[in-house]
């Protein structure tokens, strides 16, 4: 196996899972997320010579994924069937997932993209604020603000969900 092939397989092994999860929350679709990860690694293979330092592999791959996603919109002019978010969430639900996890997923799905993206890069990708800023072509202060607002919005949505659930259970009594 060539050195390039070894480097590539090592990258795939280390990052395919967080990249897939990031892609899932970005596209809200399992199948598109898988395609996007495939395209990301395909592009990474072609540009592997540009990766000079192994420590920069992580933000590099997320940047590629974002670009490949943008290409997806340029390429595909076909009308797309939008599957309901509720259905998409059901597809990833597991019998072990508790109410807290399911409520949070619903709330994350409902977040505006500009808040969800930095949040998922931070919590799934483990990127620092500066790395997120580079990957999304934003400045670090904007990223910090969006991360702050993302959490504030999630807490609001969760408390709204709890209030609605409590009211419904009171009406049921």
């Amino acid at each position: 196996m060539s050195i390039k092939q070894q480097q590539f397989e090592s990258l795939v092994k280390s990052y395919y899972q967080p990249l897939y999860r990031f892609a899932y929350w970005k596209t809200k679709s399992q199948s598109i997320a898988e395609d996007l990860v495939q395209e990301t690694f395909s592009r990474a293979w072609k540009s592997l010579h540009q990766l000079k330092d192994a420590s920069s592999a992580k933000p590099w791959l997320y940047t590629i994924l974002n670009r490949e996603n943008a290409r997806r919109f340029e390429r595909k002019q076909l009308p797309m069937v939008e599957l309901s978010e509720e259905w998409q969430l059901e597809q990833v639900a597991d019998s072990k997932d508790d109410y807290e996890v399911l409520s949070l997923r619903r709330a994350i799905f409902a977040l505006p993209d500009k808040y969800r993206e930095p949040l998922t890069l931070q919590l799934i990708g483990g990127l620092s604020t500066d790395e997120i800023a580079d990957a999304l072509s934003l400045n670090s202060n904007t990223v910090s603000t969006r991360l702050f607002r993302a959490r504030a919005e999630l807490k609001n949505r969760l408390s709204d969900q709890t209030r609605i659930t409590n009211e419904a259970s009171h009406r049921g009594k």
Binding site: V12, Y16, R21, E34, S42, E100, V101, L119, L154, K155
Partner: peptide, 26 residues
């Protein structure tokens, strides 16, 4: 604690065999 809960929620299952499919496709 809130970040821990968020990470748990974001941790959706990854399709089985994805790693092998990526390497094979390449």
């Amino acid at each position: 604690e809130f970040d821990r809960q968020l990470k748990r929620a974001l941790n959706v299952p990854v399709p089985e065999g994805l790693e092998e499919r990526i390497i094979l496709n390449n």
